[in-house]
Design a protein around this nucleic acid. Sequence first.
RNA 1: CGGGAAGUAGCGCAGGCCGGUAGCGCAUCUGGUUUGGGACCAGGGGGUCGCAGGUUCGAAUCCUGUCUUCCCGACCA
Length: 492
Amino acid sequence: MADNLTSRKQDYAQWYNDLVLKGGLAEHSDVRGCMVIKPYGFALWENMRDVLDKMFKETGHQNAYFPLFIPKSYLSKEASHVEGFAKECAVVTHYRLKNDPNGNGVIVDPEAKLEEELIVRPTSETIIWSTYKGWIQSYRDLPILVNQWANVVRWEMRTRLFLRTAEFLWQEGHTAHATKEEAIAETEQMLDVYAKFVEEYMALPVIKGVKTANERFAGAEDTYCIEALMQDGKALQAGTSHFLGQNFAKAFDVKFADKNNNVEYVWATSWGVSTRLIGALIMAHSDDEGLVMPPRIAPLQVVIVPIYNKDAEARQKIDDKANALVKELRAQGIRVKYDNDDTTRPGWKFAEYELRGVPVRIALGARDLENNVAEVARRDEKTKASVSLDGLTGHVATLLEEIQNNMYNKALSFRNENITKVDSWDAFVKTLDEKGGFVSSHWDGTPETEDKIKELTKATIRCIPLNNEQEAGACVLTGKPSTQRVLFARAY
RNA sequence: CGGGAAGUAGCGCAGGCCGGUAGCGCAUCUGGUUUGGGACCAGGGGGUCGCAGGUUCGAAUCCUGUCUUCCCGACCA
């Protein structure tokens, strides 16, 4: 059914919006560019957050919390950093309101102007490095491996639910190291953590790579990224991990004495993923019937729907069996709900849980009980099967894993089919226009050529894949010599 | 910030050109019948038509301003 959903073919952007809104994940707030994440959407984020948080801790990190506000002057201490963020910062200029003498509610009290204006963090490198200065004197204070879960604000011109909002939730890891090698290893390790999370939990294959100078984080020496492909053929950066060199240590004068009593600047990394991942999840897996959640992070993994009839006794039997199933499934750690709300009918519930992307649905009626079976439907393939009630719990647990794998494999084939090697300019443009996806082409290595290609095609270099095959070739635009292919795509 | 579209009941929309007591579908509430893919019958409730001015005897409708949202661009996680 879902006759009120826009199809992907009709209007991909509208389809995405419909899913977010009608799937109950989020809605627009009264504040421009900001969204309300609804309980179902937040449950998804919590699941993602919990898995990531565990992975961070397993790799030796601790959580901390730094302020929302950053003194304006801090941002300007690192030149390229300020250049990257200055245009999108919200600024706090006053600390008090007062009653409008003209009776129009409240106004900003002009006498409460801040001596130094505060910016609302667009990211926290500056406040954190000014803090780290006080934490680090000796090599024995290193490394510092800290993460924070926070909200940040970037005043975007144009926003889209989850993909780009003025305020968003994320985590930002900020680490400090004694050596360059150790910092680079940390950067790579966290990229691997992200890739593992996105692939194994979100069922979304990614390409690990390095950004070109144009696409690099403001203030980084190197930006590593994971890039994913959406169903409309556009790429989406799913996470980034930055090797910051000594840029912030120098900007904030953070030095340490090494074992030989030499004073050196500290090496830094930062890395983050945001609620944008939810946008990636939606656009990679969902279909024209609604959301499709990967079981491992789905807020609800299984829903049981009773098929009642007039017979009160039969109804009681269904309830009893369903409640027993819930108990068994919960004991297996499966997130399950028994929806015996009698104000909606089964067909309505089927459509509703499809829209919300619940991986497995179990329907249970009097007829099933007589035959000792249940109807088990899987969301990813939209198939139904009659399954014996004996051992149903085990069946469901296996099915959830199968759905997880199937979703990953589907996304992987799609991704692989949409990486196209292209060696001529005409084919490059044609591939972008007609097929989309990643275009693997030679590039002469200059920012000028990258800019020119972006201007002509709107495609950017998404990344230079890690462990990229070296191969002599000619730049797709300029014909100048090149040593490797890079991945171009139009991107979110 | 440029181009386009739109704001009328919780949601989706009609009405607007041609000013005259605000309507439809869904949802909601009550009662009943139902329940294997978004049930049916009967009855009920819900609106200062985004906001602020103006024109007019009278404005959802005409005029001016303003705010918000969506789409397409520029910018970006």
